[in-house]
Design a protein around this nucleic acid. Structure first.
Lengths: 235, 235
DNA sequence: CGAGTTCGATACACCGGTGTATCCGATACG
DNA sequence: CGTATCGGATACACCGGTGTATCGAACTCG
């Protein structure tokens, strides 16, 4: 997934009278370019010029799409984290692996691995996110946005989690959101470790183990094993 | 600990002929100033000038102590993370709270709270560390340093952890370093959550709970117990 | 097809930080 | 007590990014 020049290549769509950029794509393209630039140089060290250069635009284009670098940073973060959530949702729908013939412990572990496969440890994104978080901690409104996003994440993953657990014959003891939060924290915390150690397989292994144990600690075997869903709607 | 002007105040030590800065303190002072500036503006957005201004020095002074901002950032991070480790070591020695008269579960939880009290969730430091980590992920040599530091952290906390557990009548199942790693990850992951939610008490609570559960999951009652105050329920 | 609007490019004036070269004064040392 | 040294201050030349103002071309819609 190296660079994507996008200078004057791949027009091909729409009316190719002039090879130049389509009308409404600029914002998107700039955002994509920004992802790369931010990941490479860090937000603070990135300049409007770099982003424009990477995307094949001029600073004029930038300023007619964003008020400031800061604003763009936020827009980019929102777009990307949203995309990631959508990805998770999608993956959740299409995931159906056969776990039969395994012991409960094996099931649990296999399930964990499955889920962790969907939420990849992406260093590019990690860098951006870390910096954004640090940035947000200095800015009340960004902080709000971050908190809101965390809630959205929980809203998304908790049902998925419950479904998956149900399939494994387990269910959450207590508030499922608590487990959700814990898993998010685990993801964050272990991601760094994995990334620092150059994707060491051992780090991955420990990560899976930790996830499994935590899930085990927050859940119990589900005795009502038919597909009877508990009502308990806590929203 | 708000700002520390340090312009021409509080010399008082050594030979106070002139009220101005002592000879060898510059580096330290600049480092301290940098902590604040980095925390406020982020590393990327910080300039040599800002740091010097904050510390009451000129850029000349800076460049005769550091080769570049980058180098200083690293020096600062090393110094601070080292100081934090020292702090933990110290606290570990002097911590001796009486846990007698508690059930095993209560003990475990109390012990966890005790330990977590020592490793505070400091948002200033969090910001710096997050940004440094992101930065280090782009720089192989910094990455090495980060990995090395992680090992040092483990070397420091694992013995402490084992001692504490012993006092609680528990011991680690398997490799203690694995538990150490897990706890570090937990610390990182839950710190963000606490900070985002403005030090919400509930977040703290969940944090402690998660720690407790993980410790419980990775340990077992220590049967080879020497001086117990209470009987060990086999639960 | 033509008028209007929008979006991106170009140009410009400006600021602020960088790094280095040089200088000065205080400390160390014989 | 005088000299060498070193660390910090001052000054300088330079680069690079910023934001805005203006212009032209492409798309829209009647």
């Amino acid at each position: 997934m190296p660079t994507s020049p996008a200078r004057s290549s791949e027009p091909a769509t729409g009316t190719p009278r002039r090879v130049t950029k389509r009308r409404g794509q600029t914002r998107r393209r700039l955002l994509d370019a920004a992802v790369e630039v931010f990941a490479e140089n860090g937000f603070g060290r990135s300049t409007v010029e770099q982003i424009c250069e990477r995307g094949g635009y001029t600073r004029g284009a930038f300023y007619s799409n964003f008020a400031s670098l800061d604003e763009m940073f936020f827009a980019m973060w929102e777009q990307r984290s949203g995309a990631m959530l959508a990805h998770i949702r999608l993956a959740a729908d299409s995931s159906s692996i056969d776990l039969s013939g395994l012991t409960p412990a094996e099931k649990l572990r296999a399930g964990t691995e499955l889920v962790l496969g969907v939420v990849p440890v992406d260093d590019q994104w990690y860098r951006i996110n870390a910096e954004f978080t640090a940035h947000a901690l200095r800015n009340p409104s960004l902080k709000k946005a971050l908190a809101a996003r965390e809630n959205t994440i929980l809203d998304t993953i908790v049902p998925i989690l419950e479904t998956a657990l149900h399939r494994l014959g387990r269910r959450v003891v207590g508030d499922p959101r608590v487990l959700g939060r814990a898993l998010v924290a685990l993801h964050d915390g272990t991601s760094v470790q994995c990334l620092i150690e150059d994707e060491d397989a051992a780090a991955r292994e420990l990560r899976v183990e930790l996830f499994t144990r935590v899930v085990a600690a927050y859940t119990e075997p589900d005795t009502t094993h038919t597909h009877t869903h508990r009502k308990e709607g806590s929203s």
